Computed example of a mutant assay.
Amino acid sequence: MSEPNATQQTDSQTQAQITPLRCVTGSVISGGLAFAAYSLMIAIATTFANKPIHSDNPIVLNIASAVRTLVVGMTALASGVFGIVAVGLLALGIQLLFQQFAKRQS
């Protein structure tokens, strides 16, 4: 019965400290992933544009168009999410840096 209390105490003790360096490092990693996802999206879209669908069946054309749109859309979504995370982490790091300077001056 005393185990839940012990796990709650260890969870609160093992939380990492948020520092501007960790925020900037996370921002750089997330920005790199955003750039990689963007590059992948451009490569996929270029490949799809260079290889048209050769069919006369309208159902095949509709399904192929939907699949191509979904693939490009998912990579665009990934690049957008990672980009927003990178900007947010960078802003958090700057905010923490200003708070540290304000604390030192007071």
Results as ranks from 00 to 15, higher is better:
53 I>G: 05
41 M>F: 02
51 K>M: 07
57 N>E: 15
46 T>L: 11
41 M>G: 06
54 H>D: 10
39 S>Y: 09
28 V>Y: 08
25 T>S: 03
42 I>P: 02
49 A>P: 10
42 I>A: 14
25 T>I: 00
41 M>E: 15
28 V>K: 10
54 H>L: 15
54 H>W: 06
46 T>C: 09
40 L>V: 01
24 V>M: 13
47 T>K: 06
37 A>G: 10
55 S>T: 09
49 A>T: 12
26 G>L: 01
24 V>A: 02
51 K>V: 05
41 M>T: 08
32 G>H: 13
29 I>K: 07
43 A>E: 01
45 A>G: 08
41 M>C: 14
36 A>N: 04
55 S>W: 05
50 N>A: 07
49 A>L: 03
30 S>I: 00
40 L>E: 09
48 F>Q: 09
33 L>P: 03
49 A>N: 09
34 A>Y: 12
46 T>V: 04
56 D>H: 10
40 L>T: 10
57 N>F: 08
44 I>C: 12
36 A>V: 04
28 V>W: 11
31 G>P: 06
56 D>I: 01
36 A>S: 03
29 I>C: 00
53 I>F: 07
55 S>C: 14
57 N>T: 14
32 G>I: 03
35 F>S: 11
29 I>T: 05
27 S>C: 03
35 F>K: 07
54 H>E: 11
29 I>S: 06
38 Y>A: 08
34 A>V: 00
53 I>V: 11
49 A>M: 07
33 L>K: 11
58 P>N: 11
37 A>Y: 15
33 L>Y: 12
34 A>C: 04
27 S>M: 14
34 A>W: 13
40 L>F: 13
44 I>W: 13
46 T>H: 00
54 H>G: 00
57 N>V: 14
33 L>W: 14
52 P>T: 04
26 G>S: 04
57 N>P: 13
55 S>R: 12
52 P>I: 05
54 H>K: 07
46 T>A: 06
44 I>H: 12
49 A>Q: 14
25 T>C: 01
47 T>A: 06
31 G>H: 09
48 F>Y: 13
43 A>Y: 01
47 T>H: 03
36 A>P: 01
43 A>W: 13
34 A>R: 04
53 I>R: 08
39 S>D: 13
47 T>Q: 12
48 F>A: 03
39 S>R: 15
30 S>V: 00
58 P>R: 06
34 A>H: 02
48 F>G: 06
34 A>I: 00
55 S>Y: 05
46 T>K: 14
40 L>A: 15
32 G>V: 11
58 P>K: 06
57 N>D: 15
40 L>N: 14
32 G>Y: 04
26 G>M: 15
24 V>C: 02
46 T>F: 02
44 I>D: 03
47 T>M: 10
51 K>R: 02
39 S>N: 15
39 S>E: 08
25 T>L: 05
31 G>S: 10
39 S>T: 15
38 Y>Q: 11
29 I>F: 13
27 S>G: 15
52 P>Q: 01
30 S>K: 02
35 F>Q: 06
42 I>G: 01
41 M>I: 01
46 T>Q: 08
55 S>D: 08
39 S>W: 12
56 D>G: 05
29 I>A: 05
27 S>R: 06
36 A>L: 08
